[in-house]
Design a protein around this nucleic acid. Structure first.
Lengths: 354, 354
DNA sequence: GTCGGAGGCTAATGCGCATTAGTCAGGGGA
DNA sequence: TCCCCTGACTAATGCGCATTAGCCTCCGAC
């Protein structure tokens, strides 16, 4: 057992008033010096130096709540995620996004506050679990699709600067950034076409409709543009439906490449891998496979899927740029789509000769 | 391109004063009603109802900045890591800790502020690169050994609530939590002894002295207690020094188990694996190996090392508990050591018959 | 001299809330 | 009759900061 006691003497942080006393000036002067004196009030350099020195000596740091209240800003950016930002399941975490957010925020002189909306715990001490908490920060990034829409709408309507990471068209006036799935998918199709594939199928899970519309659009568009055959196939239970026979049947119908929708579990991709093996085929020699996203960690070292990577860090950085634009200009004119990077991988190759 | 414009901030955001006017009461009453009236002031039920009704009608939501200012605390916990920016490569070592930190913080109603020792960016807008920045939060967690000692000491001396993750005895009065390496190592030794090993060596890198004292202490203690032979061996350049011959020589001297210190690169462990192979031996049949920590990701799927796992999430959670105790009670009476979990693994077995 | 500016600083105010001291009317007890 | 008490409220204050109006003093111009 160890015991640590807090010195009670200076319980509570130093304030401007104390810095002022030490420097022999008024609190106003301290505020002026420390916040950059934007109103251009004449200040003697010596005074300035004394204040700075005193502040350093006391280890002064401004209280964000007070700043926010007085000036309506505190140079804090919020990051709100409804589920844990750091989930135990590292695989589909927001961490890579956060890395980009962090970098860009630091570069722009903002600190980051993580607001985690506990989906369950009704919070200690009368703490409302509401989104309004984020108002402590000048603006906020919202991560993931589970952010309560009505509360978010209210924030936006009241002029609170918010940026959603991930497409969010249905909330009018809400800024968002997202990966350009349509274009990335189209590129995958084009690459497959370049390899000689003339028929291909996009395989989706039935219930992932919403998230995949971008990819479907990109897929269909590219297919049409290149004059290819094939289309979108849905499977309610990929593991059960996608069998060796299933694959063989498509092959017989001229489908030589299978493109898997990316989902949390990557069930479709796994099913395809299994089914191809079951059919006694090998990729990329006899059939080509592509995954519209990054493989889960446990498959990463297996056989690198052809497909694309979502630039998560860049996504985060873009979100911060948009948010800061909102903060400084009151509006943002931006391109919400961040391009993905094609990943050649090892699962796609030349189409087999007919 | 999308365009998003911000309405004039604070547009029509109702305050308590407005609710009060609508309900025909004073702002005080509104505050009383809405914040639960903990001081037990008598209020007529009708009044209460009117206030509630008015608040609902106006869509009132408290301003967190004002609440936190008045409460003289902001319910923010800092997390300071001295690496440049929560980088991806460190992700593996710190990430699990953050998981625990976040969970526990959420459970206790705190939000998190992320700080990094931005050794690079020369700080925008007059913000200092000093540790004082963390004072923005009510208290702060410090991750890793690289946190500047003198600044941290000052913070602690001035009564700022801080908890270091990782043993930090030399800073008097600083609270810390760490893994119980000594006991975990002792358990490894005991398990090896139970398997019949009578001589074993702890293999360390020369320059990792500080971090390993706990393990060494645990090792030596357990060795003595069990009446075993062996000791600590240091290698300046493990890959070069630890060879097949090296292993054979020890075996001849009665050392049947090798325990590897865990370091960033796990150089010792890798060297041991190579050397054993080079000696034409196999573990665990002819020689037993143990690793005092978790294997790096690239070796995880290889051959699971016998040893122990550091409960990183629990470490983070323990740190938060200690910090919040400091915050609420002004002092903390706690056990800084978090027990590790023994990992049977596949590299240790019965000692070979003599 | 005297007056208008600077130059260099500070007093005062308010942000929106929580909290602490009241205030005031209407009983009940002596 | 007076007093005190209790129930039901409100005025006033402060949290720590930014900002707005001053307030002095010194100096050059007239």
């Amino acid at each position: 057992m160890a015991e640590v006691r807090l010195a009670k003497a200076r319980r509570g942080r130093p304030r401007q008033a104390e810095v002022a006393r030490l420097a022999g000036v008024s609190q106003t002067t301290v505020s002026l010096v420390l916040s950059g004196n934007k109103q251009g009030i004449a200040l003697h350099p010596d005074t300035r130096a004394r204040v700075l020195q005193a502040a350093r000596q006391l280890g002064y740091a401004p209280d964000p709540a007070a700043q926010r209240l007085a000036a309506a800003r505190n140079d804090l950016l919020g990051v709100f995620s409804f589920t844990a930002t750091f989930p135990t399941d590292v695989a589909h975490s927001y961490y890579p996004i956060l890395v980009g957010v962090e970098q860009e925020a630091v570069a722009r002189g903002y600190d980051l506050v993580l607001f985690t909306g506990s989906s369950s715990a009704p919070a200690q001490g009368g703490r409302t679990d509401s989104l309004d908490r984020v108002r402590l920060a000048d603006g906020c990034l919202f991560l993931g699709r589970h952010v309560p829409a009505d509360e978010l709408r209210r924030l936006v309507e009241q002029g609170y600067p918010a940026v959603h990471i991930g497409r969010r068209d249905e909330l009018d006036g809400l800024a968002w950034v997202g990966a350009d799935y349509a274009e990335a998918t189209a590129e995958v199709v084009r690459r497959l076409a370049d390899l000689g594939h003339r028929g291909m199928a996009l395989v989706c899970e039935t219930d992932e409709a919403l998230a995949s519309t971008d990819r479907e659009r990109g897929f269909r568009g590219a297919l049409a543009q290149a004059g290819l055959s094939g289309g979108v196939v849905r499977a309610a239970d990929p593991a059960a439906e996608i069998t060796g026979d299933w694959v063989r049947a498509r092959l017989a119908a001229g489908i030589t490449a299978f493109v898997a929708e990316e989902t949390d579990t990557c069930a479709v991709w796994r099913a395809l891998l299994t089914a191809v093996e079951e059919a006694g085929l090998t990729a990329p020699a006899e059939v080509s496979l592509a995954l519209l996203g990054s493989p889960p960690a446990d498959l990463a070292h297996h056989l690198e899927p052809t497909g694309f990577d979502i630039p998560k860090a860049e996504l985060g950085a873009a979100a911060v740029r948009t948010l800061t634009a909102l903060l400084t200009a009151g509006e943002a004119d931006y391109s919400p789509l961040v391009p993905c990077e094609f990943r050649p991988g090892l699962t796609a190759g030349r189409a087999p000769a007919t």
